[in-house]
């Protein structure tokens, strides 16, 4: 697939930590509206790949094309305006939100950071985002410890959606949730993908969830892709 048509195109990605090669010439692509799962044992390089895709850790080799732009060729300044379009959702819903911050401030923060906060329209936008993830906007006044794990994870997703992303990197988004809450969050992610055409890079070790939720699966081991299906 050419970089122009794929939402994300990763070519020969290399990530090193000192002399250790964590990601060894990994290539894959992802279309809008598609879910690509990255699977493999702990330490296989999937989270390093995800961090390099998001340019949270600048890769040591290879190219990352996102929405037709080569991220690996851009400096931090040029990357900044692109960052809202690719957002992570982390495993630990409590750990990914500041415990002291009210939910509505946590969701509003990306807008503020991007200089897109509008004092008149902002609160309504936050309420809309909370509603979008199935949270009663009244929960905006609460702090993370006053929410269940599932509600907290929904707030984390609302925060990721604040910058109108095109790509979400979902790093074990339901693994830390109670079993009775997992299906609800997976359903929400499926809904959002359908409504917003999001591309998902989905890191998960539960193969039953992966098979159910993903269009394609890339399996990694020791930093390399060992299987694609």
């Amino acid at each position: 697939m050419s970089p122009a048509s794929a939402l994300l195109d990763v070519r020969d990605l290399v990530v090193r930590y000192g002399s250790f090669v964590a990601v060894d010439h990994v290539s894959f692509d992802l279309a809008a509206g598609e879910t690509l799962a990255l699977v493999g044992p702990s330490g296989c390089g999937k989270s390093s790949t995800a961090a390099a895709v998001l340019q949270l850790h600048r890769p040591d080799g290879g190219e990352v094309w996102f929405d037709g732009r080569e991220l690996t060729a851009l400096d931090e300044r040029a990357l900044r305006p692109l960052r809202p379009a690719m957002q992570p959702v982390f495993q630990d819903p409590y750990g990914s939100l500041s415990p002291r911050c009210r939910i509505r401030d946590a969701v509003a923060e990306p807008l503020r950071v991007q200089g897109r906060w509008d004092r008149m329209a902002g609160p309504a936008r936050v309420a809309e985002l909370l509603d979008l993830v199935g949270l009663d906007p009244a929960y905006g006044d609460r702090r993370p410890h006053e929410l269940s794990g599932g509600q907290c994870q929904r707030a984390g997703i609302a925060r990721a959606l604040a910058g109108d992303p095109r790509l979400l990197v979902l790093d074990e988004p339901v693994s830390a949730l109670d079993p009775s809450l997992r299906a609800g969050v997976l359903n929400l992610l499926a809904d959002l993908q359908e409504r917003l055409g999001l591309g998902y890079l989905f890191i998960c070790h539960d193969m039953a969830v992966v098979r159910h939720f993903s269009d394609r699966v890339v399996e990694m081991r020791d930093g390399r892709i060992v299987d694609e299906r």
């Binding site: 509600q151 009775s180 299906a183 609800g184 359903n187 993908q193 359908e194 098979r211 159910h212």
Partner: peptide
Amino acid sequence: ARGGPVAGRRLPSIAGAP
């Protein structure tokens, strides 16, 4: 059904929280 459109990925789920 699996492998269909995204809507087909909806799982039965328990409402609310513990």
